[in-house]
């Protein structure tokens, strides 16, 4: 209280100081700048994700046990909207998913978009509710009992998905091993792209108009948006292309072949991982809008601050 009182007094005594106005303006601008810096999402996300920790890729054929577990998961988390057979129908809010295919299920669940509380709104990417094992079980059940066999299944197991998470392992050694294995797989896939240049052309011709040149996403009509794809794993990008989640069009394996998809994914991932040769601040790779904003708020403000220093009134005592 007294401290506050003193502060107020201190301010009151100085509020008519000739420099008071400048101080207020400078403070306001600083606040603005810091505010922006806080709001602006961190740039390191993409890299952090790549290095993040985690689970093994179970490649064995699913057992009946897995299918049973999957059924339980389905009934617990999915059936309330999609119905007991995945056909939804009368009284259910969700769509019929029998024709969507396992790739779509994997995409929706592994990106945390499903299960969703609000079937009408576009879901943002979230940490997945189910862990890898549960997702595998769910897919086993879906393939065995719900899905239409003609719909796109989960693509080749060479395509890396989420890196293993530490929490899914009991001992550290197994985790390390799984992580290493995953990293090798990731590298094989990205480095193995035969023609990343074609990947660039395909990306610019078919993807950049929604997801932007940097993969930062963009606005769509009706309040929807094309999501940022920095966090998406190669597997998720692949699945998104073949299933066309939400309003995204489908790019079947015949239109863009698996090899070309690999090129495209390699291009995006390489671009996102590339350090910014122009300096550490990449302005979130938004480019022109952010550049103009910085030119005004940082550049011009600093220069004007210098002008104020140069021309400030000079008293004998300063």
């Amino acid at each position: 209280m007294t401290r506050n009182g003193e502060t107020v007094k201190w301010i009151t005594a100085r509020r008519r100081h000739p420099l008071a106005g400048y101080v207020v303006v400078t403070l306001a601008l600083t606040l603005f700048g810091v505010g922006y810096a806080v709001i602006a999402p961190g740039a390191e996300r993409a890299e952090a994700q790549t290095l993040a920790a985690e689970a093994a890729a179970a490649e064995e054929q699913p057992t009946a046990e897995d299918v049973a577990e999957g059924r339980e998961i389905y009934n617990k988390t999915c059936a309330s909207c999609h119905g007991p057979n995945g056909e939804a129908g009368e009284g259910y809010t969700g769509p019929d998913i029998t024709g969507e295919g396992a790739a779509a299920v994997d995409f929706q669940v592994s990106t945390g978009r499903m299960p969703s509380m609000n079937p009408d709104a576009q879901m943002p990417r979230k940490p997945p509710v189910l862990n890898q094992e549960e997702i595998d079980d769910l897919l086993a059940y879906y393939n065995a009992e719900l899905g239409d066999p003609g719909a796109p299944g989960v693509p080749s197991s060479d395509i890396p998905g989420e890196p293993p998470k530490r929490a899914d392992f009991e001992d550290h050694g197994a985790y390390e091993e799984a992580l290493e294995e995953w990293e090798a797989k990731y590298e094989d896939y990205i480095e193995g792209a035969k023609n990343p240049n074609a990947g660039m052309e395909l990306y610019l011709a078919n993807c950049a108009h929604c997801h932007s040149w940097s993969g930062q996403g963009g606005a769509l009509t009706g309040g929807r948006w094309a999501p940022e794809i920095g966090d998406a794993t190669p597997l998720q990008i692949y699945e998104a292309m073949i299933t066309g989640p939400g309003t995204m069009p489908e790019f079947s394996d015949k239109v863009i072949t698996p090899d070309e998809k690999q090129d495209l994914i390699a291009y995006v991932k390489d671009l996102q991982a590339e350090p910014n040769a122009g300096g550490i601040f990449d302005l979130n790779r938004v480019a022109q809008v952010a550049e103009g904003f910085i030119a005004w708020t940082v550049g011009l403000t600093l220069i004007v601050a210098c002008a104020i220093w140069i021309t400030a009134k000079q008293r004998t005592h300063d």
């Binding site: 040149w213 910014n276 040769a277 601040f281 480019a287 910085i294």
Partner: peptide
């Protein structure tokens, strides 16, 4: 600004 803030990264645009 030019040293630390990347502007118009044409090499990334394509």
């Amino acid at each position: 600004l030019s040293g630390f803030v990347q502007i118009n990264p044409i090499h990334l645009f394509g």
